[in-house]
C-alpha cells in the first residue's frame, strides 16, 4: 500500500478507532480482548483497504469485530476457559455502580450472538436488516434474538423495572 492510501487508512482509524473499540468492548466484555479484536479487524481491513476504502469501511470493520468476537466466544465456551456463566444473584443495589454491574454482567452472560444483536441494535442503533447483514442471518432471527436477550436482561435485573431503578439511584 502506498503513502496516500496509508494516510487514508490512518485518518479512518483516527476518526473511528475509539468508536470501534467501544463496539469491540461491548461485543466481548473485556478491555484487553477488545483492543486485540479491534487490531485484528483493522489488520484485515488494511489488507483489503484498496477495496474497502471506496465504500464505507466502518460497517466492514464492525462486521469483522462482531463475528470474530462471536467466533472466539464459541471457542472459549467449548474450551471451558470461561465457565458457563450463571446470572449473578441479585445484589443489594445501593449505588448506580452496582446496578451498572448487574446489567453489564447480564449482558456479558448472554449467548454471543444475542449479545452482538443487543450491541448492534441498541448501541450502534442499526436496524434489524443491517444487523442481520452483519451477522449473516435473517431479520426475523435478529428480532427473535433481540427479544430473547431483552427478556433475559429484564429477568437478570429482577422484577422491578430498570428505568425505575436507574431513576432511584440517580435521584
Amino acid at each position: 500500500m502506498s503513502g496516500p492510501e496509508d494516510d487514508g487508512f490512518a485518518a479512518f482509524v483516527a476518526a473511528r478507532g475509539t468508536s470501534l473499540l467501544r463496539v469491540a468492548y461491548l461485543a466481548c466484555g473485556d478491555d484487553r480482548e477488545a483492543e486485540d479484536l479491534l487490531q485484528t479487524a483493522l489488520e484485515r481491513t488494511y489488507r483489503k483497504w484498496d477495496r474497502v476504502r471506496y465504500d464505507n469501511p466502518e460497517p466492514y470493520v464492525r462486521r469483522v469485530i462482531v463475528n470474530t468476537a462471536i467466533s472466539r466466544a464459541r471457542r472459549r465456551a467449548i474450551l471451558r476457559i470461561i465457565p458457563t456463566h450463571t446470572p449473578p444473584e441479585l445484589p443489594v443495589r445501593e449505588t448506580d455502580v452496582d446496578l451498572r454491574h448487574v446489567l453489564m454482567d447480564a449482558l456479558r452472560a448472554l449467548p454471543p450472538r444475542q449479545r452482538a444483536v443487543v450491541v448492534l441494535r441498541y448501541w450502534e442503533d442499526l436496524g434489524e436488516t443491517q444487523t442481520a447483514e452483519i451477522l449473516g442471518c435473517s431479520a426475523g432471527t435478529v428480532k427473535s434474538q433481540a427479544s430473547k436477550a431483552l427478556t433475559k436482561l429484564r429477568s437478570a435485573i429482577g422484577a422491578q423495572s430498570v428505568e425505575g431503578l436507574i431513576r432511584n439511584v440517580h435521584a
Binding site: V13, G17, R22, R100, L107, V118, L150
Partner: peptide, 23 residues
C-alpha cells in the same frame, strides 16, 4: 429497557480510547 441499556453501555465504555499507536 432499551434506552437504559444504551445509557449503561455508554457509561461502561466512556473510559475507552483507541491507543495512539494503533495505526
Amino acid at each position: 429497557l432499551e434506552d437504559d441499556l444504551r445509557q449503561v453501555m455508554a457509561d461502561e465504555t466512556a473510559h475507552l480510547r483507541a491507543a495512539p499507536d494503533l495505526v
